[in-house]
Design a protein around this nucleic acid. Structure first.
Lengths: 209, 209, 209, 209
DNA sequence: CATGAATGAGAGTTCATTCAT
DNA sequence: GATGAATGAACTCTCATTCAT
């Protein structure tokens, strides 16, 4: 009987190698040969376990997103009030062991590829929707509906922006300065809740998804 | 008799075709053949005018950035006060004829490629620095130094986030909803200038460049 | 301006090289690399002129069949009576400049591949039908209908059998002995026309196509 | 405890699976993986029992030929006179349980491969020689020597032709129409024995082997 | 006895580049 | 100034083989 139980181990090895390779060479120059070399395995192994390069790339992004969403769910479960729920979301996005520079770089590469792959688009859409849903739910308990929706959109954009800059700087978003941007933004959004503020003249923000 | 003065015309044709091709197929699937076909020219022409594919890609991003910075400079020159200077920067980033969905998509592809190309890194660094410099200069006239720096960082991140989301949505950032996010963010940043607020406990934001 | 008018030359070169390669190595071991080497060209050229290996293989069989049918049509036009029409068909199948050992070998390889390729099946079907139609038309003027159909089937089988044996022997079917088999068979079929012969107890032969 | 005596069972399973696979996919697309899957066994088993793919292919053709020759020997032993001996040969070639469409298809694939494999060439040569020897022996008792040799060649070609057409039509050669062709041919050959016929002007047929 | 994990050579294909015209 | 024919390197994928279990 051949070695059994290798499948999950190999798949994880290859996904990790894919992230490292994308970080090192960029999406366009990520080849089967480089990935398998980074994993210390043969080139044929990718066909063996994933069927092909595209399936491995998709599995890699799925893995990143799954980790992120698991983290988000975990932290949300431990949060008691709306504000800490939002902070839990920020924490999950910035301050987990998955928020390494390598993962940020891979993330950005995937973002650029999202419009050209049905599979990636699906994965991304799920993430975006879940993020907005969680943010809106929390903000709605803190702000009027229109302001809550705007706040959710704004915070989503801020999270994306911070990720992008982390990717470009080859740093984790989990550093005082970057994380502080989101925290300050959150504080400002909330301090306005009592402000005698007319609703944005632009009305509700347009949803991207 | 050979046509003369074709160089600038051809270069522009090819750069435009490159942007359209990146939008249509993504960076990784942008080939010489597709670009030249999009331009209605032969494949050899790219070597003729740019020397090679990479040089064309670099010229394309340089063109996008140059347009953006020219627009920014133009609008800044017409702005009289710090607030309208910031709004000029936002306008240049969101609301010019260069902010088409196609250019956004190309932009995002370039972003993902920036860490893997010395040329792109240089171009990007110049843009980032100029953007931050302009923002800080304006904010410094409105906020204490630390807050001004934080605001400049935050606004940069917000701009990037909005671009990313516009690229993913195949839309222009120049639409009420998205632009409104940046405007609201700006308003909040400024309204805090009188707030009895302690400086962020995190200190100055870390600079990416 | 690049060299023009190369297309038909290159296509012919590559088709000839394909026939030689199939003869030398067999269908299963006929590779792009071997074909292009036999043609004295680079491997990329096949994609350039045919789009891919399969299209080249199809074009090769089409070329062989086209030559054969052109030859058949030419000889039939010059034949005055039914018997010489049948002999013209045999001559076209056995005694043309296209009936080289190499082409016979390629032919046999294609035959074995016919059931697994829609394109080859179509080409083969056309050849079989035209052959039978020509044979039947001639035999019908010499024999009762049922006998004529049987004769056409029998002669088709004999032609195939002779081709197969020529292919296996690496010889042309155009040699005294092999061709004589078909001639004798034809003579026997015709001498029976006056024989007081009961129709075959098996009735009409089953058509393969 | 290890099962014993599996060898003949496994070898038979794999040979049958090989024939089915060649029929289904053609020789060029017959892979280890497809064969073992058709046999319901693992891919490693082929190396285990045959040493490699080529040895299995050779064993498969040997099996087909052995069955055919066993059948021929059996039927010949029961035939009392020359004519029934020839009919026994035809029966063995067309009307046994081995003459399935699948075996015909495999047969044709092997034919195309014969010139490129020393092993297959040897196997085929033995078959051809035995067939001709048996035919000649019988015809010689019925016809003058030259005519007998010609008849043996002609009947061999007819048998091959019928097999080829059966293979292409995915049918057994054992059907009224196809078999009738050979029977009629035989009858004609024999009826000429009394004809006042000069020997073929072409002299003796050339032997392929 | 039998498996299927793992390998790596080699297949077909794509593509940036070169260059004669 | 412009073409596209031609190249060959590099890619992805397939597959026969090997071998630990």
């Amino acid at each position: 009987m051949p070695k059994v139980g290798m499948q999950p181990i190999r798949r994880r090895q290859l996904i990790d190698a894919t992230i490292r390779t994308i970080e090192a060479h960029g999406f366009a120059d990520t080849t089967i040969s480089r990935i398998s070399q980074a994993a210390g395995l043969s080139s044929g192994i990718i066909g063996h376990y994933f069927g092909g390069k595209n399936a491995l790339l998709e599995a890699t992004m799925r893995s990143v997103l799954t980790d992120l969403q698991r983290e988000m769910a975990l932290r949300l479960r431990q949060a008691q009030d709306p504000v800490s729920r939002i902070e839990a979301i920020l924490g999950a996005n910035f301050a987990t062991e998955q928020s390494t520079p390598a993962i940020c770089a891979a993330w950005l590469s995937f973002y650029a590829q999202v419009p050209h792959s049905r599979q990636l688009r699906r994965l991304h859409r799920v993430y975006v929707r879940r993020l907005r849903s969680n943010l809106q739910h929390a903000f709605t308990q803190l702000l009027p509906r229109a302001a809550a929706e705007q706040a959710a959109e704004g915070m989503s954009a801020m999270i994306d922006g911070i990720w992008v800059r982390a990717a470009l700087a080859r740093r984790s978003p989990d550093n005082a300065g970057a994380h502080a941007l989101a925290d300050d933004y959150l504080r400002m959004l909330l301090e306005h809740r009592h402000a005698d503020r007319a609703p944005s003249k632009n009305g509700r923000p347009a949803r991207i998804y």
